[in-house]
């Protein structure tokens, strides 16, 4: 498979056997660089640098993990949703997130890893998920704030990923972004209903925005001068914009939306800067961000415990499905296994 893949990307390069391997590597690297420079998509069977593969596995897996851990803070309110319409919307959203997790694990698997392996890394803390999901959902309004701010930040991050150099990831992002935009509008609409509701509902909405604003800004990652992977990812066209650029874009989008919601953003330094044509905003508390990343956020332990427990308590179900499939495939005359058994018997 590797040979066939190499042929495709290396184009006219002739494969001369093992002795030529070193020269071939250079040719593959040149072909890869040229493909990235020409904005062509890299596909699973194409040759790619090992570091590019490893970066993508890390990023896509972290993205997939974020989708499934991200189900928890919202699912926390499914059984308490205050109207049947809102309950249906929230259930559909959490279901979409499980679906996004599935697309993204599939995209990661095209790079030669497996879902089981990635889940194991999540459960043992060797791979991360988005820091935002370590904050608790304390009121119903948090469901709206997550939709508006957290999904809004996610979309700002993810829309450029639709043009990412790795084909399976880019295509997954096209599907994910469509659904996320829908969730974001629903979150905004939920907050608007609260903001225009009773004084208690308005206060609930404001409190939620106060608590989710800064963690949402942290979703864009550390400032550009401290971002370890940024330069290489941008060179590979995995990333298209820097963390700070995207964060600024997000702030500029949110300010007028907050105004039409009738809610304030909890930042006294937030103001329009005429010269820059952008908003200035206050300093982010990076020490909090680092603590959350280190596992010391409000819900880190709870989130991983729930995920691990679901996985462990479900082991007997997965084992049953595998055992049943194995029995069934032996019984099924069309299956490969039984053809092999038949061949041995003959």
């Amino acid at each position: 498979m590797a040979t066939a893949a190499a042929h495709r990307t290396a184009g006219t390069q002739r494969y001369d056997g093992r002795e030529a391997a070193e020269g071939e590597q250079d040719a593959y690297q040149r072909a890869f660089d040229a493909a990235v420079a020409a904005d062509e998509r890299i596909e699973p069977r194409d040759w790619m640098p090992e570091a590019y593969r490893a970066t993508l596995v890390r990023q896509i897996a972290q993205h997939a993990h974020s989708e499934i851990i991200g189900m928890q803070p919202e699912a926390n309110w499914i059984t308490r949703a205050p109207s049947l319409r809102r309950k249906a919307i929230l259930m559909a959203k959490v279901q979409d997130e499980a679906g996004h997790g599935l697309y993204l694990y599939s995209a990661a698997e095209t790079l030669g890893t497996g879902r089981e392996e990635l889940l194991d890394k999540l459960h043992t803390g060797r791979q991360k998920y988005s820091s935002i999901f370590n904050y608790p959902t304390l009121t119903w309004a948090d469901v709206g704030a997550i939709g508006w701010l957290v999904d809004g930040a996610a979309i700002t991050n993810q829309v450029p990923l639709c043009r990412c150099s790795y084909g399976p990831y880019a295509r997954a992002m096209v599907r994910v972004c469509k659904e996320e935009s829908f969730h974001q509008r629903q979150g905004y609409e939920l907050l608007l209903a609260l903001s225009r509701g009773t004084p208690e509902q308005h206060a609930m909405a404001q409190d939620a925005v106060d608590r989710w604003w800064w963690p949402s800004l942290m979703m864009f990652g550390p400032p550009d001068d401290e971002s370890a992977h940024s330069a290489q990812s941008m060179a590979w066209k995995i990333k298209r914009h820097s963390n700070d650029e995207l964060r600024q874009r997000f702030v500029d989008i949110c300010v007028p939306q907050a105004e039409s919601l009738g809610l304030t953003l909890p930042d006294p330094d937030l103001k329009w800067n005429e010269d820059r044509g952008q908003h200035d905003f206050g300093a982010i508390d990076w020490s909090e961000f680092k603590e959350v990343l280190k596992g010391n956020g409000p819900c880190n332990e709870q989130r991983i415990t729930q995920r691990t427990r679901a996985h462990e308590e479900g082991a007997w179900v997965r084992e049953a499905a595998a055992a049943h499939a194995a029995k069934h495939s032996r019984e099924n005359p069309e299956s490969r296994e039984s053809r092999e058994t038949g061949a041995q018997q003959a």
Binding site: I68, M71, A75, M91, V94, R309, A310
Partner: peptide, 14 residues
């Protein structure tokens, strides 16, 4: 709905 986030496999969450 109480199962959401607790299912034995992602396909069953869906």
């Amino acid at each position: 709905g109480e199962w959401m986030g607790h299912a034995p496999v992602l396909e069953e969450e869906v």
